[in-house]
Write a protein that binds this DNA or RNA. Structure first.
Lengths: 103, 103
DNA sequence: ATTTGACTTGACAATTAATGTCCAAAAATA
DNA sequence: TATTTTTGGACATTAATTGTCAAGTCAAAT
């Protein structure tokens, strides 16, 4: 249940790399990477893909962390957060069904 | 499983009101209301509250529709949409637990 | 104690995304 | 066809997010 930032930091530490080294690879400012790792800034989708590639991690796995963080962020301090999330899930399910199984 | 826009349109039609009449009450441009009803624009949270009050609907009920729409929108055409939503729900649950039951 | 290297912080700039407005065009209604 | 309602689209405005830079903190090493 880790945030995208925590995951990235762990991956970096596992490889004993410095912020500036990873930042250079991903082509972002090291201050920005620092903020991303501490969840002070969200990376972009494209950056997440680059992290996945660089660290040899499954892209979709990281994208799930990334998007779930964004979703949580959207309703973080709303009273109806959980309910909204549950309804959203149903809506997504419905959309997916319409897309595929027409029958 | 209706969108916030559809709900608002239905409420307006049930009362046989014109766009301009409701728009005036809510204090928004009627073109904007038209767009909101057709999901071409999202209302703001505050506008949703005003709709609820004006139509005599439960505020939280409308807010759930509103936020769930926003959540869906965030991941609408992502492959990992459903998975991300499920993980987000778990994260929300976790956050709620931390907030309350400290045990 | 000073220097060095890694990381963090904060103010600000730049970019991107969303909402809001106006007016003309379309559609519906009388 | 005249009138009224609704919609479309371009543009303005505002808000939110990401990105940058320079200075600051902290710890380890010397």
């Amino acid at each position: 249940m880790k945030s995208i930032g925590e995951i990235i930091r762990e991956l970096r530490e596992q490889k004993s790399l410095l912020l500036r080294q990873v930042a250079a690879e991903i082509e972002i400012d090291q201050a920005l990477l620092s903020k991303i790792e501490r969840n002070e800034r969200m990376p972009t989708k494209d950056q997440v893909k680059r992290f996945a590639k660089f660290f040899g991690k499954d892209e979709n796995e990281l994208l799930v962390s990334f998007f779930s963080d964004k979703l949580v962020y959207e309703v973080r301090d709303e009273e109806v957060a959980l309910k909204a999330m549950q309804v959203a899930e149903k809506k997504i399910n419905y959309i997916i069904k319409s897309k595929n199984g027409k029958s």
